[in-house]
Design a protein around this nucleic acid. Structure first.
Lengths: 362, 362
DNA sequence: CTGAAAGCGCTAACAA
DNA sequence: TTGTTAGCGCTTTCAG
């Protein structure tokens, strides 16, 4: 009748989970002792510990995390929501997170929102059911319900890849590490205008698709306006970004604004696509047209000509997010002001070089 | 003293999880009724169901999956192990999986092994602790312990991206969907030799890094041997693949084998890097050198000249894996022979075109 | 240092 | 249709 009876030979038809009770029985100790031997070895005598460990090994015992978490009240899961895995930016942020979090015993649960608040809301709801110790979100724009659920759950939240400004009341939700997309837009205009470009276009995906891209464009347009430059040269696609969309965006822009002399794309992939299209059309870059990307993916430096773009510290953002979260989970960290990790313009060959006297402004 | 006392106002300092008991109390029903109203609505009267649902909404109740799984014995997690997220191949496989699995109530747990069996083993161990309903692995090469743990756990396993051949005894572990890398290697030689190339090199990362790449090279070398062509033109790097490594590989190969006329790279990223290097050096492709990639990522068709490569049905593989797993979990599927999804050579512009009379062989 | 009892939040099984 | 009881596998008390 004993449950442990059928476990030795895996011959039996019925799958019998091996529990810590089985291990304890095999080692001839109490369940609790087995638990301690496994989790707090220093609290158990050498002899018993050895016996337990050996029994566990023999039985291929694997602790049930769900049961453990339930009993201890501890959360073990750490959901990370990113908009997409197609941009290496997010993959690298994940790498930053994975450097420390798994070691600390947390399980990263990955979800991709596809830039949709509704999908984000769904994912948050699902993940909250996994007793998360915390949660990492991309961006600071969430649905009202997402915010409410998160608040109600009372889990630490880290928002990355965007920066809550002081005037945005109620933001951030909790911890926040990122940079100002608005200022990226401004800086790009400063840079391109400094290089002497005057007909500067922006191109990206539909505004609803990415609020951060929208904020970049706001900064971009305001900076143009301040300089008295035209700011109506806008290319938009309703498809998710890809090289093909980059080509199409460029073609459309060229048709509509034949006089434009520079384009700022919402990411390097679009910019690379545009560059390929220029190659095919025989448009000389940067002599006839300047192209600028955003995020500095690996391809940027390998393109011919190499792509001028904006570098953002993704891995660092991931690492920092992990560190902050760990500190907060350890109870060593209270409320915290948003952390700005900044960005840099990487000048390469798809733009004319900036005159000497302006170099340091970048 | 009642536990539910402190829950209404979130003012209290102490975080009080809202449980189904709280919902039941608020709705004035038994816990079990609340559970049924939430999970099997049809078993509860309209009135009570409405009351329960409303209470749940008001309290922002989120069911605890760990507790639910524990009680019902059901597994809710579905780990997916991929070697890396840097190749879009794996991202697309994930998309294929995500089309159906989450809807069916499963939570995908993502782990990346970085092409390491040790890391894979660790991940399997961790994930097995999450009561997985099944598990999806990349490739058919696993450590002895991984195999043992998986067998002991008795969970359905799907191995993707490679195909177990009949002569490989003990393989696959369970379900298997993929294609033969060995035959890819052969087909590439058939194709390149058919185009008239004679000094054909292969280039990729170190053999330990990717057993599937090794198998491709085996097929490649055997096919060369059969044709009496030299098969010692091999470029290897110990760094994970990237555009930069592709360039270096090409440079190294060029220095060692000045007479080579074609190179087959282990993936499109390496091939793209090599192509960029050719552009920089002014080497004409395919006039002076043919370049061929593997996996047909988006960039392949946009490069100038566009890259000849091997297309593999990744999204389909993901979808199929999901379907099979679902069928197995539903008990409608017994042991199953490996499923070959095949591959195609996509002829583009980095290789001379194949003579007419050979076209259909590809 | 070791053990026994209680219970985490939920649902299967049974009873009403 | 609804409620009660027991227990999933583990760890937290609290005793020895």
């Amino acid at each position: 009748m004993s449950k442990a009876e059928a476990l030795k030979p895996p011959t039996g038809r019925k799958r019998q989970r091996i529990t810590i009770a089985d291990v304890a029985k095999q080692a001839g100790v109490a369940t609790m002792t087995a638990s301690r031997a496994l989790n707090r070895p220093e609290m158990v005598s050498d002899e018993l510990r050895t016996r337990v460990l050996q029994a566990a090994e023999e039985l291929n015992y694997i602790p049930d995390r769900a049961a453990g978490g339930l009993a201890s009240g501890a959360g073990l899961a750490l959901p990370v929501l990113v908009p997409t895995l197609h941009h290496s930016v997010y993959v690298q942020i994940l790498e930053g997170l994975e450097e420390t979090l798994p070691e600390a015993g947390y399980q990263l649960l990955l979800g991709s929102t596809e830039y949709s608040r509704e999908k984000e809301e769904k994912l948050v709801e699902v993940f909250l059911g996994w007793r998360p110790s915390g949660i990492i979100l991309s961006g600071i724009d969430h649905s009202e319900r997402t915010t409410r659920l998160l608040r109600a759950a009372g889990v630490p939240v880290v928002e990355i890849m965007d920066l809550a400004e002081p005037e945005q009341t109620g933001l951030p939700l909790d911890l926040n590490i990122g940079f100002s997309h608005y200022r990226v837009g401004e800086a790009v205009v400063d840079y391109l205008a400094g290089c002497g470009y005057r007909q500067i276009a922006s191109a990206g995906t539909l505004t609803e698709l990415d609020p951060r891209s929208v904020r970049r464009i706001q900064g971009f347009q305001n900076a143009l306006r301040r300089r008295g430059l035209p700011h109506h040269l806008i290319g938009r696609s309703d498809r998710p970004s890809s090289l093909a969309v980059g080509r199409d965006l460029l073609s459309g822009l060229l048709a509509e604004h034949p006089t434009m002399d520079a384009v700022f794309f919402a990411n390097d992939e679009l910019a690379a696509g545009a560059l390929f299209e220029c190659q095919r059309r025989g448009i000389e870059v940067p002599a006839h047209l300047a192209i600028m990307g955003f995020s500095d993916e690996e391809i940027a430096s390998h393109l011919n000509p190499a792509l001028t773009t904006v570098r953002i510290p993704r891995r660092e953002m991931g690492r920092l997010a992990a560190d902050l979260l760990l500190a907060r989970l350890g109870g060593q960290l209270g409320p915290q002001a948003p952390i700005d990790v900044g960005f840099d313009i990487v000048q390469r060959a798809t733009t004319r070089s900036l005159p000497r006297e302006l170099q340091e402004r970048v």
